[in-house]
Design a protein around this nucleic acid. Structure first.
Lengths: 184, 184
DNA sequence: GTCTATAGATTGATAGAC
DNA sequence: GTCTATCAATCTATAGAC
């Protein structure tokens, strides 16, 4: 599953054949079908696995960083940590969801759940900063969209300074963001 | 070529078979090979065609709109005009470049030229607003990235209000953007 | 659990008749 | 220019021996 995840990310889901995954883990195709009945099943398992890993990562961020503003900053920094991979293969979530949409694949909604995971977690942080639910969600979607755009262009232009520049702009936006005064 | 362009956009390049294009235009596969020697040749032709159309579109915008700030606004409005298609299939440029990158396709650089076309045109407008070349290009990349992120998330969440909200935010950013004072 | 063998379908591409 | 026929490769999936 780890290998399948990597291959799907690097070469795309459709372009990654059943046999190439089996070969990469040193199994025959026949044996591989013993573990996964169909190719779609691997995709389901990979998305499931990513969902769990994402949940764990967000929980770890929340545990390590109490302040909501610092948590949001941590999300932005993720792009710098994964800079090399993003420039080569884009965002793992964005590129997968985009591909599945083109294929009209049944697992589309499942994969989109990864986006919802991030959106909801980000919205929680904005809410903790004092934003009302609709504003918190709007900011979460904005931050998520910014990150997607950064990943797409960083890959197309293979620019190693672009991610840094844009993340810095994001951090500045986060620092300057002030929730509306709450009327007591 | 028009049909191929549409099919590549809707279903992706690899997922669109040679035969399906031939069938869509009412030709046999054999006859289609008379016009295009290989599948990659259609892709090249499609990118070429899009490049020319994009050039023409940008020139038309420049001709119809003299003020650089209004030209930038026109770029942002494009996403609202194509809202339905974007929500279904994403950005035609972004999704194609992303797919070709995963396939390690030779036409990758060619397709990325579409992004460069937009970036350079946008940078020209920012330069006309009074920004120095590095700042103009930075703003161009920023605007392009924002548009890509909006397209990706609008598709994943199939949200028809999201594009409007984000484009409004872009327009506000453009309106408030002031070039640095030039020292005489 | 692991393998080989193979079915069945699709696809990219070619050959050659008309 | 257009077609049918066909090749060769690839890929998903199954069957069955060990």
């Amino acid at each position: 599953m780890e290998t399948a995840d990597r291959l799907f990310y690097e070469a795309g889901y459709e372009h990654t054949s059943f046999g190439s995954i089996a070969e990469a883990v040193g199994l025959s195709r026949g044996n591989f079908y013993h573990h996964f009945k169909a190719k779609d099943d691997i995709l389901t398992a990979v998305v499931e696995r990513r969902t769990e890993q994402t949940r764990a990562m967000l929980a770890a961020w929340a545990a390590a960083t109490p302040a909501p503003r610092a948590r949001l900053a941590q999300f932005a920094q993720m792009m710098q940590r994964n800079s090399a991979a993003i420039r080569q293969h884009g965002c793992p979530v964005g590129t997968l969801c985009t591909e599945l949409a083109k294929l009209e694949h049944p697992a589309q909604a499942h994969a989109n759940g990864l986006f919802r995971l991030f959106r909801d977690w980000l919205a929680e942080q904005f809410a903790a900063l004092g934003f009302a639910p609709p504003d918190a969600e709007r900011h979460a979607m904005h931050l998520l969209a910014r990150s997607q755009g950064i990943a797409t262009l960083a890959q197309a232009f293979d620019d190693h300074t672009f991610i840094d520049t844009e993340v810095a702009a994001l951090q500045q936006w986060l620092r300057g963001l002030r929730p509306p005064r709450t009327t007591p």
